[in-house]
Design a protein around this nucleic acid. Structure first.
Lengths: 197, 197
DNA sequence: TCCAAAACAGGATGATCATCCTGTTTATAA
DNA sequence: TTATAAACAGGATGATCATCCTGTTTTGGA
């Protein structure tokens, strides 16, 4: 019997973060036990504790590295790349709605899920989540300002539009998750569009 | 030493529900231990178990009796009593914002807080919360239809307006809670109004 | 008055969970 | 090669928690 082991700190860290991000979104922070995460990731207690000394440290890493990245990928980057803020917002709503429809269930927005459970519990959690919200809003507002500089988009207040968009999306996802029906997303998008044209 | 005790089933049930509703909103369902609730309500384990056999039963009672009642009081009744749907919505937003400003902190919307934590965990929770959301939207949509019947309110789609309003409010409260700043509520309200006039 | 059921008391129990601790193995740099 | 730290293993521990159980008191009806 040969003994073999290959140390792979980055890979192990990544696997734990993958499993934790998934479980936190599906079951929430408190309902996700470290034992479950260890089993799901195929990681021992010692390894987990080495990379993340506490559960809180793990959650902060999930927020900083996974939740922020997910928002960048599904919202911020597409809006920046879109021809206009309004078109970008519409496309993201529709893309998310389409994805939810084909997967058949709604787990909600990772940012909102964690924000509700953690922002009152711990100020470090709160601050980390708040800064992601702020970056989200700013990306949309900046895009509106860009549109205004290059001719389009009349007198829309960029910050108001951004706040309303983020709020409408977050709230729509809340309802979609609770009803397990992504139709609300499209309904809210139509409301946003029909009001602003 | 005289022994005295006055049975007060309704009062005891009410006190437990008060404490539980408060704690569920402030700390969430999982982070609220029955021991804490017992201490805060001044109730023994036997009494608690007599009125609510399980923690889940307690939470369902909180949802059905307290969360639903809170929404009726702060949203549905004011909107129904308002001269128009739009004015009702605006007044509620402003009333809530004013209340949050004077109390100095934001605990979020009880319905949304519980919806995020519980709707994926248990289908009975999910269904109870979803029906409250549905009633909320319907009350607003009905008010719009009333307005249209009595002359006002042009071609606004009642269901779209209701969905957008509830989503915007829920999402704005999410952000306000995470940022601990009620300003977002007013910002979103301005966005809603400026788009719809 | 008497009795059965409801209301309440308070401790027991077993399971769960996050953290910690003591080792062992692998990588790195001198 | 060797020393040192990082990476990993796996069990121990103590605390917490929801539920249950046995017993006592109160209440309302017969």
């Amino acid at each position: 019997m040969r003994k073999k082991r290959t140390n792979d700190p980055e890979g192990m860290r990544r696997r734990v973060l993958d499993v934790a991000a998934d479980s936190f979104q599906a079951r929430g922070y408190h309902a996700s036990s470290l034992g479950d995460l260890m089993a799901a990731a195929g990681v021992t207690g010692g390894a987990l504790h080495h990379h993340f000394p506490t559960k809180k440290a793990l959650a902060l890493a999930v927020i900083d590295e996974r939740v922020a990245a997910a928002l960048l990928e599904t919202w911020i980057a597409p809006v920046r790349a879109a021809p206009s803020a309004r078109e970008g917002v519409r496309d993201v709503f529709e893309a998310v709605a389409a994805e939810l429809e084909q997967q058949g269930y709604v787990r909600g927005c990772p940012l909102n899920n964690l924000a509700h459970e953690l922002s009152l519990a711990d100020d470090q959690f709160r601050a980390a989540l708040a800064s992601i919200f702020a970056g989200w809003r700013q990306a949309i507002a900046d895009k509106v300002r860009d549109d205004q500089r290059t001719g389009g988009e009349g007198g829309t207040d960029p910050d108001r539009f951004a706040a309303l968009t983020v709020a409408a999306y977050s709230g729509a996802m809340s309802m979609a998750k609770t009803a397990q029906d992504s139709g609300v997303l499209r309904e809210c998008l139509r409301g946003l569009i029909s009001l602003s044209t």
